[in-house]
């Protein structure tokens, strides 16, 4: 199993922390993982993205230049990351904010109404977790339990009700195919 993932969106959408969560979950599951952020001026400029690798083997490159999966959370991220996807790769689109449609036909596209689902689960802030849930459900690269357990390590100060809400968002996301 090898999954190279790129997660992208506005600063504040939690794309960077979603990446950390994914890597932490991989570690919980006994996989080799890496996480690599965008940093410097781009972070200040509003859009952010990160690379995550989860594998049974060894992580060679932490910079995922041809992802197996791209999770795009905002409009500007779609044209940026769609072309990079591997043939047959998975593109998870936050349809709450992205109205454009992808051009490629050699990839699998899943539309997730992340913001609405997250709000229904209790908080708009959990939109990133809805997308992670979808990723976990489709690829099987990681279990929902592992992500939930990783949350306790990553969000150390989160109250139990927030963790519960997050888990709900994950599970809702995982229902989508």
């Amino acid at each position: 199993m090898y999954q190279g993932v790129r997660i992208a969106g506005f600063g504040g959408q939690g794309v960077v922390s979603a990446g950390v969560l994914l890597a932490q979950a991989g570690l919980v599951d006994g996989k080799a993982v890496s996480w690599y952020p965008s940093y410097g001026p781009e972070m200040r400029g509003g859009t952010a993205n990160c690379s995550v690798v989860i594998t049974d083997g060894e992580v060679s490159t932490p910079v995922v230049s041809t992802p197996d999966t791209a999770i795009v959370m905002n409009e500007p991220s779609l044209p940026k990351f769609e072309p990079l996807l591997k043939k047959g790769g998975l593109l998870i689109i936050n349809s709450s904010l992205i109205k454009s449609k992808p051009k490629r036909t050699d990839i699998r596209v899943v539309y997730v109404d992340c913001n609405a689902i997250a709000e229904k689960a209790g908080s708009l802030k959990a939109a990133n977790l809805v997308a992670l849930g979808t990723f976990a459900g489709i690829t099987g690269a990681i279990s929902i339990d592992a992500i939930a357990s990783a949350m306790k390590k990553v969000f150390k100060r989160a109250k139990p009700e927030i963790l519960e809400l997050n888990r709900k968002a994950l599970e809702e996301g995982a229902k989508l195919k």
Binding site: S38, G40, V63, P83
Partner: peptide, 16 residues
């Protein structure tokens, strides 16, 4: 090359 996408930290106008 399409730099902006191949390298997550390179962006037009980015300096420091």
């Amino acid at each position: 090359k399409t730099y902006a996408v191949n390298n997550p930290i390179c962006k037009e106008g980015a300096l420091l």
